[in-house]
């Protein structure tokens, strides 16, 4: 069974890059263009892993994590934060919010796939 990824990012460029990298690696790719949409499609997509940007309109990445990790339908699906920053402060905040890990932009295909593998146990 293929591994489903839900990527939430307001940048079409980044969504496209992720799509190309991940579909190329054999993942099933789904995307949403802001946090709110991401949270809404989450039950439908039912992904094995979520990748989310931080700075987005409507609902930011922390909002996404918070929504997915709280309430009766909370999930323990791995959530990766996509960030341009690599400060410890941001990592601590992401971890505090319930993120599973992070990918620092710009990312290369190999490290992206290897992080996904580390968190899902699947290669794609």
């Amino acid at each position: 069974m293929t591994t489903k990824v839900l990527a939430i990012d307001d940048s079409r460029t980044i969504r496209n890059l992720l799509r190309v990298s991940l579909e190329g690696a054999g993942f099933e790719f789904h995307s949403a263009c802001d946090g709110q949409e991401g949270v809404e499609v989450f039950p439908d997509v039912d992904p094995d892993v979520v990748i989310t940007d931080i700075n987005m309109p409507k609902m930011d990445g922390f909002g996404v994590i918070d929504t997915l990790r709280s309430g009766p339908n909370r999930t323990t699906v791995p959530i990766l934060v996509l960030t341009t920053e690599s400060s410890d402060q941001l990592k601590a905040r992401a971890r505090q919010a319930g993120a599973t890990g992070w990918i620092v932009k710009p990312f290369d295909d190999a490290s992206l796939v290897s992080v996904l593998k580390r968190l899902t146990g699947h290669m794609g």
Binding site: T13, I14, P106
Partner: peptide, 17 residues
């Protein structure tokens, strides 16, 4: 926030290339 995001997204994409 919208201004910040615009600049931020350009940076993010530019980094990728």
């Amino acid at each position: 926030n919208a201004v910040f995001r615009a600049v931020h997204s350009i940076k993010g994409g530019a980094g990728a290339f």
